[in-house]
Design a binder for these strands. Sequence first.
DNA 1: TCTGGGGTCCTAGGACCC
DNA 2: TCTGGGGTCCTAGGACCC
Length: 458
Amino acid sequence: MFALVDVNNMYVSCERVFRPALNGRPVVVLSNNDGACIARSNEAKDLGVRMAQPWFEVRHLERTAGLVALSANFELYGDMSSRMMSLAAEFAPRQEIYSIDECFLDFEGVPGERSAIGRELRRKVLQWTGLPTSVGFGATKTLAKLANHVAKTAERKPGHYPPELRALAQRLAQVCDFGRLTAGELEAVMQATEVGDVWGIGRKTSARLNEGGIRTVLDLVRADVATLRRQFSVVVEKTIRELRGTPCMDVNDAPEANQQIMCSRSFGAPVTELSDLIEVMSQFASQVARRLREQGSVAGAVHVFISTSPYRRNDRQHAPSATLPLPQPSADTRVLISAAVRALRSIYRPGFNYAKAGAMLVDLHAQAPGPEPGQGSQATLDLFEPDPQPQAPLRGRAGERTDLMSALDTLNERFGRGAVAVASATRRAGPSAHVSRQERRSPRYTTRLEEIAKARAA
DNA sequence: TCTGGGGTCCTAGGACCC
DNA sequence: TCTGGGGTCCTAGGACCC
């Protein structure tokens, strides 16, 4: 038996913990450049604000409906997330952190009445972090996701269910255990839920399913697996089997290293100059390099892309990309910046209004043990490159072997990101055109001492 | 004027091999 | 004139997730 624990409207809920005055008001959190809405409170959803909707389309609601918009504060959300996750982990032997606001728990072998456990989990997370959650239990991950969806819908929109289901829906609000339903009750709930609400059935697939007469979850459960497998893919087949109660996916509590690491941004204003692109691309490369070392990997290739804005209909469009294999896998910021810039130079063309750029590390491998002096590295050497000269090791205080990159990471960890950087990735004098707008960001209450919330008497 | 930023998995088709 | 068959690997693109 699996549970899915999910924070309701995560980003907005994090903001509300520190600004209770936002409770009950319509609130959205905006993406980079304050461009689009990436989180909405229930009140904002009720105003009709859609996910990823451009801010300029809804900003009139600030005046007319009291909508509050905040810039994304990922440092705060990440920290709140890890608090919530460690509390949830106490309730089951295995946990898979699925996203910043969701985790699966495996309740195999856990005694006790699950609804009660779910309510206790909810209560504790709310009391200790201030974050409201929903909990769904099911025999498979897909069913747990669906139960979680029902827990939310029953809480927020009880009127969604037909009158004969209202009493049941009331019982399932906030914490929904499919294991306690009779077969008839489960079918009724599935019939009242659209097929597109199932985990793994997206917009395209649900549209095609609808055309074929499959509209509800119950329709999908009763459909012919072989036919749908042929029409769609093995993903849809697995989804159907999971909805029928056969587990096809396990909880993965030992997350594997990422297979790609990307950093990309839309610009606050169009960028045309190569020198500006080199600067941002160097910053992107520095970021991904840092995250690459964090997970203990090396990259075999660097992929970069730049693109104009498809929304600027009068601009000539251009969206080139290039992948540059490295002579040897590396996690060295200097190597990765240099490759990214070389790739960028190869695709850049003057005369375009670039709106977005990104750098991606691909072909990632676990870091081979570092080359000790006198010993070869385990990485394959390039026949046509001179032998690599290992960095002269610096001696850390405790005598541990370190090198330039770990020194860089340590300094930035201690003194703040960007304290030390490769020169091409540092901001040149004067304001850059592509500085992102973030005019509404709340303080990083839980991770920066100088931004901690102040309690005032009187 | 202003339109997110990460990821994963699957499939089809081409290159290549014997 | 007649021109195989089966397999693997890689990549690009699509669909999905939050």
